[in-house]
Design a protein around this nucleic acid. Structure first.
Lengths: 229, 229
DNA sequence: GTCGGATATCGGACCGTGGTCCGCTTACTG
DNA sequence: CAGTAAGCGGACCACGGTCCGATATCCGAC
């Protein structure tokens, strides 16, 4: 869907130092991912064991864990393409979400987009976001960096690191599974709540009380780390 | 420490419909809790298995699970006394935390108190707050109710339910384990961040823009559900 | 007071699952 | 075509959680 293997594509050697993957390994990896996604969709994520995925994909359990490390990491890998697309929209997309809009509005758009993503993939995401390494996963790191930059731009005086973590906690999978699914708050209410939260948190763009926030660098630098990790 | 079995004590039949606990059961329960707490402290929560706790307490594994249901529930039970004390302070304590202060200040005090609690018991709490039933646990329910009331008092126009969940997410055990322990943000910074977050979220008590917020009922109603559940 | 039965409790054998290990196999390299 | 290292796979382990026969406790009857 993105970053195809087209040989004419621009090389980013610093970001792609991992060409050596044996052919059979690549084949198995792809088969595992497809099989896992299919089983997840057919029977529900929590009703599919790693043994079943391995058997259905025609590989040994050891292979499964060698390639993905854990159940959570496998779920993350299943979503990695879509996750990358979302990141792409953040960094190079159209203005409400992508660069160009005021940081506060981008922050609101980020949360709303994330909520859409949660609705779509809640089950798999909930499986992906367990264990302590969930905070070190590539998508989480990207989101954190993004939020921190936006917060700093919108209000250089705030504790951007703390606020980043606090806000991300309200966009996590288990948060949505509980608030959105168990308590059945409708998506629109969650989006409205998020927008209001951000609006209260950050100064109004109309009032020019933060003159230094004129989008200094716009974070166009390097591409995000590919989701393969 | 609380609700002793003194026969002369005032009876609250609606809240204590569970007197029938066999003598040996009570003895075992106490022994299990003490043993678990000791083992947790000695070797770290994550290095103690349920089998070990059962063996050290001199009971069978079945007893352990019959009484507590799950590892998370056992951890919760270990903390229940301290948790009850905190709830007590919320409902009947001195004004910054207890009733009497402005809701916004109580909310700030609540978060700071909760952070202290997290610092003290991070490991056990992290074990207690796993699984989907963590949101239905008695302490969580009490916190939620408390926050929702305070938010409604401080600003009747806000979406108190959404904000409650969003704020509680920033006071959860895994949040602290990551932000406070892994990223090593000092406690004082977390407290300051929380206070600033609440301050930005809610209108200033000085400005009387919320005339209806004069602490209408002060939630003195019934005692909280005892932690035994 | 003690006896007997209904019933809650006990405890360890048992299961499924996530995760690890290590000898065998298979694909790349010169 | 041989060497080599990466990949592979299934036996193995530890742990959380379940089940059911054996056992102890309580309560009413005598």
């Amino acid at each position: 869907m993105h970053l195809p293997a087209s040989p004419a594509a621009i090389e980013l050697p610093l970001l792609a130092p991992a060409p050596p993957e044996r052919a059979d390994a690549a084949r198995n990896r792809q088969r595992i991912l497809c099989t896992a996604e299919r089983l997840f969709a057919e029977r529900g994520v929590s009703c599919v064991s790693m043994d079943e995925i391995a058997a259905a994909a025609g590989v040994g359990k050891g292979t499964l864990f060698r390639r993905f490390g854990s159940r959570a990491a496998l779920a993350m890998a299943v979503l990695s393409e879509r996750e990358s697309a979302f990141q792409e929209a953040l960094i190079r997309g159209a203005p409400p979400l992508g660069p160009g809009a005021h940081p506060r509005d981008r922050l609101i758009a980020f949360g709303e987009g994330r909520l859409d993503f949660l609705v779509e993939h809640a089950e798999i995401l909930a499986a992906a976001e367990i264990g302590p390494e969930r905070f070190s996963s590539a998508p989480y790191e990207v989101s954190r960096l993004h939020l921190t930059l936006l917060l700093r731009q919108a209000d250089p005086g705030c504790d951007a690191e703390y606020l980043t973590e606090a806000l991300l906690a309200a966009l996590g999978a288990d948060f949505y599974v509980y608030v959105g699914l168990a308590r059945e708050l409708p998506l629109e209410r969650l989006k409205a709540g998020w927008a209001e939260l951000v609006r209260r948190l950050l100064p109004d763009p109309g009032a020019d009380c933060v003159p230094g926030a004129r989008l200094p660098a716009e974070e166009a630098g390097t591409a995000p780390a590919p989701a393969g990790a």
